[in-house]
Amino acid sequence: MELVDKIIKGERAAIAKAITLVESSKDSDQQISRQMISELIKKPGKSIRVGFSGPPGVGKSTFIESFGSYLVSQNYKLGILAIDPSSQITGGSILGDKTRMVEISKNPNTFIRSTPSRGTLGGISMGTREASIILDAAGYDFIFIETVGVGQSEIVASNLVDIFTLIVGPGSGDELQGIKKGITEYADIFIVNKNDGELKMEASKTAADYKSALSYYKKLDELEKQVLLVSAIEQTGMEDVIKTINQIIDQNKLKGIFDERRADQLEYWIEEEVKHIIASDITKRLISKGNIPKYSKKVMKNEMSMYEAVETITNDTLKQ
């Protein structure tokens, strides 16, 4: 495939077109895209996929700009996939990611793509997974996957990356009570940002709080979770972050955790995709049969109960 060759050569426009294909909802695009992906996975690169999440205001954007600049200054090639959930009722969206990555977006060693999530995180993340395969084949050393906000998107994002990073601010230690076992399973590294000026003391204290809380939740066979202190604004602590990322990746590879994780993720995505296909198939059938308006009228007229209606519709939809 010509496109594949161009991607491997690292041609910017080809990479961009390829990402459009994997994100496309058009059947013919999806077919080309599948063929392309199956060719690309035969020529894997070496990229490490890193996920970033964190509550708004902790300086996540500033950190990504700062850490990204550091990486490109060290001659790494950096791809960034930003999933923007700011879609609206109308479906269109405003993608403002470029305004948050002014410096790195200029650098020829970066590729930055934002994707409107259109409300359905599942579908779009499938595209993100494949987009990272494209960037990998194109020779990017790191692929950042950035999700805005927390919650549902965090779980999805953690299934897209080799290493997942949670950024927090000084003083967020109080929220530790809120940190349930769950989150520690997703995040490999905790970055306490704003370790500068008057906030330094507070930041160190927060880091210490995180460390002790995390050791409390640590499972026996698990690696120590890393807590790092950085200042995105002063660009300090960046070497630690990259060192830690490399260390964790090396260790995980050694222990087989790296592959294990990618295998788990694959299972997750296969399951999600199958569910997605079944669900959309059934939804189509459900709508075409027109049962919902029909039976809801009956329920309105008290001719049957809602539960009876649900059961009847379900059976009718599932029957072959």
Binding site: G92, S93, I94, G96, K98, T99, S105, K106, S114, P116
Partner: peptide, 19 residues
């Protein structure tokens, strides 16, 4: 434009044509 259904990428201020 976004309200009408476009996906709109918003660039930052002060970009160079190359960027």
């Amino acid at each position: 434009f976004a309200d009408m259904g476009f996906d709109v990428d918003m660039g930052p201020l002060f970009q160079s044509p190359k960027d």
